Amino acid sequence: MFEKVRYENLNARQKENYNFHKVAGRLADYGYNSLRLNDDWNGADFLAVHVGGTTVLRVQLKPRFSLYEKYRGKDLHIAFLTGYACYVYPHDDVLALVEPRGRFSETASWAERGWYSWRSLPAWTVELLKPYKI
């Protein structure tokens, strides 16, 4: 009756919906109720509200580990899936740790477009992102 979909066969909007549900399911294990937004409200694709009532994460979905100049100072978390792992990291905190390394800030992508992403996680990011793996 049910047939799994192949992620690579989905269009961009379908992939975003798929990723939202995967991340929301992981966050639910940690007491978060995720609420999808119809538009990118101040950069957020969805809100994750903790059952304790005091924590609300504004989350932007991405297909991979990414940093953006336009998200600086917006108190956003970035969520992405890689394999079976899910990461939800505070953008500005991670940006502050990665930026001094100079590994991306000198690229054309950052200089011209204000963002950089890694196709796969470099070895040096494993420890850096470990606290944000859910």
Rank of each mutant, 00 (worst) to 15 (best):
M1A: 09
M1Q: 12
E3R: 15
E3S: 11
V5H: 13
V5M: 13
R6W: 06
R6M: 05
E8K: 14
E8Q: 09
E8H: 10
L10R: 13
Q14K: 14
K15T: 03
N17I: 08
N17R: 14
Y18F: 15
N19T: 13
F20G: 07
H21F: 14
H21K: 15
H21G: 10
H21L: 13
G25N: 15
G25V: 07
R26H: 10
R26E: 12
A28G: 05
Y30E: 10
G31C: 05
Y32F: 15
S34C: 15
L35G: 04
N38Y: 12
W41S: 10
W41E: 14
N42Q: 15
L47R: 12
V49G: 03
V51W: 13
G53T: 02
T55P: 01
V56M: 11
L57K: 11
L57W: 10
L57Y: 08
L57D: 01
R58C: 03
R58S: 06
Q60N: 10
L61C: 05
L61K: 09
L61G: 06
P63V: 04
R64D: 03
F65M: 12
F65Q: 09
S66R: 13
S66Y: 08
K70A: 14
Y71K: 13
R72M: 12
R72A: 11
G73L: 14
D75T: 08
L76H: 11
I78P: 04
I78T: 11
F80Q: 10
F80M: 10
L81R: 14
Y84T: 09
Y84A: 14
Y89G: 05
P90A: 12
P90Y: 09
A96F: 02
A96M: 03
V98Q: 03
E99T: 00
P100T: 00
E106Q: 03
T107D: 01
W110V: 01
W110A: 02
W110I: 01
W110C: 02
W110S: 03
A111H: 05
E112I: 02
E112Y: 07
E112S: 02
R113F: 06
R113T: 02
G114A: 05
G114Y: 07
Y116V: 00
S117Y: 13
S117I: 01
S117Q: 05
S117M: 04
P122L: 05
A123Y: 07
W124K: 04
T125Y: 06
V126G: 01
E127K: 08
E127S: 07
E127H: 04
L128F: 03
L129T: 00
L129S: 01
K130G: 00
K130W: 04
K133V: 01
I134H: 10
I134D: 01
